[in-house]
Amino acid sequence: MTDPLSGEDNHAPAADRPAVLVVMDPTDDAAVTAAALQAHNPAMGRITVHPTPVTSSVQTLAHDLLAALGKPLHRLGAEKITSARLAWQAALAWLSGERHQQVVVLRAHLMNETRWASMLEIPTLTSAQLVLIHHAQRLSPAHQRLLSSIPHRITHDITKALPPLHGEHPYEDSFPPSVSLPELPRSDFPHFRAEMFRHLSAEQFAAADTEYTRGVETACHWLTRHPDYHRHAAAALGPRNIVRLHAA
């Protein structure tokens, strides 16, 4: 049952690590904001997002997330990431690829239903736990409704949501060592590998192709975990291949 004042879900799962943690900060305590900002440590697998105020744009939220991840926003146009959907997919892909364990978002009470729905995709499609800092007395009915579909917990204690980080990034050992690569072609994806083969020596191509293959496999792994993957893939392939798709 949900407490109408705090929004606290008395039936929240008892798991040690719920997908979503909501930190209620009804007095908008500056110490809570400071703790969330100080917790930002991408090298250890935790990022803090301070959303751009006075906007309801999901694209701007995606840019805020990419900025928190340390990604160069000025490169988005060159990479043809020009829409809200593409920007959000890019942010989720980076989160998943770098295997961050916690995403902390300030000012969650100011986000509309669409932005909340986007944020709640993070624990569903990546390995990261989502921590929403809610600087208000209570959750709105729309926010409560969205939370009801995902394992979550509500707390008033910021320290419980942001435990100290120890050691290295939890997946540090899984990252490949840095590889020195030659200058690569700037071709689009369908032609990129062929252009590498044409312009690089055999040794350079072998090194670059190893990293390229690793990237493609990582991207495919992330894409096939998306809940809409089979629906979109089946529509693209046509009815004759639906059986083959589901058997894959």
Rank of each mutant, 00 (worst) to 15 (best):
A30C: 06
K71H: 09
A84I: 10
S56M: 01
P51T: 07
I81D: 10
Q129L: 02
A39E: 05
P72Y: 02
A34R: 08
W94S: 13
A108Y: 06
L92I: 10
W116V: 12
A31D: 11
A30Y: 04
A62W: 02
T48Y: 00
N112R: 07
A35P: 01
P26G: 11
S83D: 15
S57Q: 05
A93W: 06
A128M: 01
D29L: 03
H63D: 15
L125S: 14
A62G: 09
T48L: 02
I133D: 03
D28L: 04
A142K: 05
S83H: 12
H143A: 06
A68D: 10
M44L: 13
T52H: 08
P26F: 03
T27G: 11
T52K: 04
L120P: 02
I47S: 09
L130S: 05
A90P: 00
T52I: 07
V104E: 11
A39I: 00
H40N: 12
V49G: 01
H100E: 13
A68T: 11
L146F: 03
A62V: 06
L139E: 05
S56W: 00
A30L: 08
Q89W: 05
L76P: 12
A62S: 14
W94I: 14
Q102E: 14
P72E: 09
L65C: 09
K80I: 07
L147S: 04
R115I: 15
A67E: 11
H63V: 12
R107G: 15
H134M: 08
A91T: 13
A36Y: 00
Q137M: 10
H109L: 02
R115E: 15
Q137G: 11
K71M: 08
A93L: 08
V58I: 15
S118R: 09
A128G: 05
A93M: 06
Q38I: 09
L146P: 02
T55S: 08
K80D: 14
W94N: 13
T114F: 07
S57N: 08
P72T: 02
A90N: 03
A35E: 10
P123Q: 13
R99T: 11
A31H: 06
T82F: 02
W116Q: 12
V103L: 12
V54Q: 14
L61Q: 12
P72S: 06
L69E: 07
M44A: 15
L95R: 07
A128K: 01
V105Y: 00
V22G: 07
E79H: 11
M24Q: 10
V49W: 00
T52S: 14
S140Y: 00
W94G: 09
W116L: 13
A30S: 11
H63Y: 05
T60P: 07
T124Y: 01
Q102I: 02
A84S: 14
A34H: 06
P53G: 05
H135S: 15
L37A: 08
A91V: 14
W116G: 08
R107S: 15
S148M: 12
S148F: 06
N112V: 09
S127M: 12
L73C: 12
L130K: 01
A91S: 15
L125I: 14
L132W: 03
T55E: 05
A35I: 01
W88R: 02
A62P: 06
M24D: 06
D28R: 03
V49P: 00
W94H: 13
L37M: 13
S96E: 13
